[in-house]
Amino acid sequence: MLDQAEGYTTADGRKIGGTVMDMRNITLRFGGVEAIKNISFDIREGEIRAIIGPNGAGKSSMLNVISGFYVPQEGEVWFRGEKRKPLKPFEVARQGIARTFQNIALFEGMSVLDNVMTGRLTEMKSGLLSQAIWRGKAEREEVANREICERVIDFLEIQNIRKTPVSRLPYGLKKRVELARALASEPKLLLLDEPMAGMNVEEKEDMSRFILSVNDEFGTTIALIEHDMGVVMDLSDRVVVMDYGKKIGDGTPDEVRNNQEVIDAYLGVSHD
């Protein structure tokens, strides 16, 4: 089913392309602790890739490696056919990788619109002088990027709160605004760290719908960490399972579900 060069077709008939992100033998240590042990996996164009595992398995560390926040001691990160040198996080963002955080990392003092507009900062290149007089390139960029942000705001159905300060919003909406900010940068790879943590069923359904339609309409490649197994199995095309920093499973949701090691990791196994 999985053709290395060509990609594959999912059960619902979507075409998945070649490799976007390739993690090769990644090892990440904090002092004596090995958070990630020699893990390799790939993320393909247009797919929804889930990373799951019990608490402390190293999922968030993995995401932080992808987003450039941690630099692994060993292994190589290949992004769009090129080996990535150790980069600063803001340089990774400029390559087209956007992410959301497990505990919301919005800019509380700014309005929803301004928060979403920060997602476009990598594209706004007008000089300080032009911005100071608010003429020429600065004004044109402001309007052009505002249009892109408004499309995202429209898409995520948060038009009515666009001028509200983020600090006044409830939790579920904040999560959505954070997704909007990540989407505004039109990322080539979108990383979602527990997008449904702490949500009720309706909010989870909304968020799942948004994730699916982002993938469907914009063709965005998505890698997500999630604890809700129902959500993961429904949304994702392929799943990586981690436990104690090691990869114990990789494949379609069905394959993973029937993997004995994965079952052991989640349900526990008697050591006799």
Partner: peptide
């Protein structure tokens, strides 16, 4: 303002 409110998140979205 992004740097003021949360410098780590600011860096992740591409603010130098």
């Amino acid at each position: 303002m992004a740097i003021r409110d949360m410098d780590i998140a600011a860096e992740i979205i591409g603010v130098n």
